[in-house]
Design a protein around this nucleic acid. Structure first.
Length: 588
RNA sequence: GGAGUGGUAGUUCAAUUGGUUAGAGCACCUGCCUGUCACGCAGGAAGUUGCGGGUUCGAUUCCCGUCCAUUCCGCCA
């Protein structure tokens, strides 16, 4: 069956096309029936064009048919491009200077009235939109996001190809490994009782590709983690995965920067200045209380341990004695915060494991629960340290170094968001380097790799691996963009002996290490080049370029926060037969 | 696993100290309307108040449980 096929899309006709006979296909976005003349806004993914049916010029069959057309009908129209008497009032509409005088109309398919209006989808609750995701995807906003994502793929692929990288696919069914996130497991009919795992990332494979001599590898790849979701976390997400041989961290960073420059050119229309700034982990923590600081606003942390320990406040002194610090921020204009507000901030800080929050409120009167422990003169020196003026608020946190810094950093962020201090039109993008190699897990009562267990230690810190493992810095780097980790990577261990030593440090016995990573340890013995790489969180980056908060909005078919899909009903039960074949039984 | 917010018509919201027939905008349906672009006007249909239980003469409203959405903490090398 044939139909009127489009000669143009709904976003491309302009005044200069006047007089031309065109055919358009699309969805009826809105319809305005004035009793005589009828207007449609015809929509496709390229835009919208106004279509006019005039009873005086259209024949009566056409007019009667046009009267039956409703929102979201799929139609084909033929007609003449005509200048409008007045340009359309909708300034967003690029075709607003013209309209199509219709001479033929075909209804290609009718539509029931949709569960929500495509033209007003912004305020609809997420559950309704998720159930009818294919309708939400009709909205110009989501269509733009998905197209931006497409462009990102293209730019990345071109960039890496032009720079001599090879795209290689790695297995989706792989071996379950310890460390890191929970795996999604996949049973198999052929191997009852055994399981594949979906990759949390292709980490081991890309290192093996380096052993194999593939020099420069990249892949745009799905990764899977069975952890709780957030606005910026989905159980399956996409990484731009990169690995390079014969490189150090500067080479990997330069490669990354080159791509970011192209992306910023395309999506922000700005020239990114290279090289990007560098900040060590230690500096990020002490200045911003975060390993991914948002530097679009100030309110930096100041450490005042020695100063405040001149007071008689025992809590500060005890903290110092136990090796902790006192750090804080100055909230400009924060003296207006109510007691209730300060209680709320205290509760918020406690979420991050500090015991309390001290403050100096420089209002009409100085107000502070700890001022009796401070001399006038000492207080003034504290204020000076923070450059605090009348009307400001100083918040102080005392605890072990990292705990105090993190809690203060979180307060800094929360307050900045509430006081609207973040300039969304700016971009803050830079490297954070020299992460600690290890951290101590209270839960597991052992050291765990902060990045992953293949990350190389800084050469000058190698000897610390025996004496003071927590002090060892890693050759790891994160690209931080507007307070998010946009990419993260490291130079890998390419010597078997160092790798084995690290496994030992994180409590993996030789047997366990062999059992879990034997193939990698073996490979490292057969001539492994120095190598390193990085992985970009594609969803997060695209979300940033689209100026949306949730990566849900840049994924065609995302999961809800409970990791399910209201649209297709996954995950779902399966039949007894399926379970039997897999040798599985549901416990309860 | 924990905390916050929300769930009432297709949809977005309202409903006084617990009170009688649960309202409004948009969408939908009918009629009118020849330059709209949030078209306009008149009328109409549309409800398991998420679900289950409890208190009460009476529950959208109070209590308990539970489900869903969303944000955050834990978790996510």
């Amino acid at each position: 069956m044939s139909f009127l096929k489009r000669t143009h899309n709904c976003g491309e006709l302009r005044l200069s096309d006047s007089g031309e006979k065109v055919t358009l296909n699309g969805w009826v976005h809105k319809r305005r029936d004035l009793g005589g003349v009828i207007f449609f806004d015809l929509r496709d993914r390229f835009g919208m064009t106004q279509v006019v049916v005039n009873p005086e010029t259209a024949d009566s069959d056409l007019y009667e048919l046009a009267k039956t057309v409703r929102s979201e009908f799929v139609i084909a129209i033929e007609g003449e491009v005509t200048a409008r008497p007045e340009p359309g009032k909708n300034k967003e509409m690029q075709t607003r200077e013209i309209e199509i005088y219709i001479s033929k109309l075909e209804i290609l398919n009718k539509a029931e009235s949709t569960p929500f209006e495509i033209s007003a989808a912004d305020d609809i609750h997420e559950d309704t939109k998720m159930k009818y995701r294919y309708l939400d995807l009709r909205t110009p906003k989501l269509q733009n996001n998905i197209v931006t994502r497409h462009k990102y793929y293209q730019i990345a692929r071109n960039y890496f190809s032009q720079n001599n990288f090879v795209e290689v696919e790695t297995p989706i069914l792989m071996k379950s490994t310890p460390e890191g996130a929970r795996d999604f497991l996949v049973p198999s009919r052929m191997h009852n009782g055994r399981f594949y795992a979906l990759p949390q990332s292709p980490q081991t494979y890309k290192q093996l590709l380096m052993v194999a001599g593939f020099d420069k590898y990249f892949q745009i790849v799905k990764c899977f983690r069975d952890e709780d979701l957030r606005a910026d976390r989905q159980p399956e997400f996409t990484q731009v995965d990169v690995e390079m041989s014969f490189v150090d961290e500067i080479d990997v960073q330069e490669t990354t920067e080159g791509l970011m420059k192209k992306l910023f050119k395309e999506f922000r229309n700005t020239e990114l200045e290279l090289p990007l700034p560098r900040m060590t982990f230690a500096e990020a923590m002490s200045r911003f209380g975060s390993d991914k600081p948002d530097t679009r606003f100030e309110m930096e942390l100041s450490e005042v341990t020695d100063l405040v320990c001149e007071s008689d406040f025992q809590v500060f002194k005890d903290t110092k004695e136990r090796g902790g610090i006192v750090t804080g921020i100055c909230v400009k204009g924060g003296a207006t915060f109510s007691r209730k507000k300060l209680d709320e901030l205290t509760d918020y800080a406690k979420k991050f494991k500090v015991k309390g929050l001290a403050y100096f409120k420089l209002g009409e009167q100085l107000s502070s629960p700890i001022k009796k422990f401070f001399s006038e003169e000492l207080m003034q020196r504290v204020f000076d340290t923070f450059s605090a003026e009348q009307g400001d608020l100083i918040l102080l946190v005392a605890d072990q170094t990292e705990t105090a810094q993190v809690a203060t950093g979180e307060l800094r962020l929360k307050i900045a968001k509430e006081m609207n201090l973040i300039d969304e039109s700016k971009d803050s993008i830079f490297w954070v380097t020299e992460f600690p190699l290890l951290e101590y897990s209270e839960e597991d009562e052992r050291f765990v790799a902060r990045h992953h267990p293949f990350t190389a230690p800084l050469t000058e810190d190698l000897e610390l691996m025996d004496s003071d493992p927590l002090k060892v810095r890693a050759r790891a780097y994160d690209l931080v963009w507007n307070g998010h980790e946009a990419a993260g990577g490291s130079i890998r261990i390419h010597q078997n002996s160092v790798q084995e030593k690290l496994f030992k440090l994180i409590g993996l016995s030789e047997e366990e290490a062999r059992e879990k990573f034997g193939f990698l340890l073996d490979a490292l013995k057969y001539g492994t080049p120095p190598h390193g790489g990085i992985a970009f969180g594609l969803d997060r980056q695209v979300a940033q370029f689209c100026n949306v908060d949730a990566i849900r909005d840049v994924i065609a078919f995302p999961k809800t926060v409970s990791a399910s899909s209201p649209m297709d009903g996954s995950p779902s039960n399966v039949s007894e037969e399926q379970l039997d074949q897999l040798g599985l039984r549901i416990k309860n």
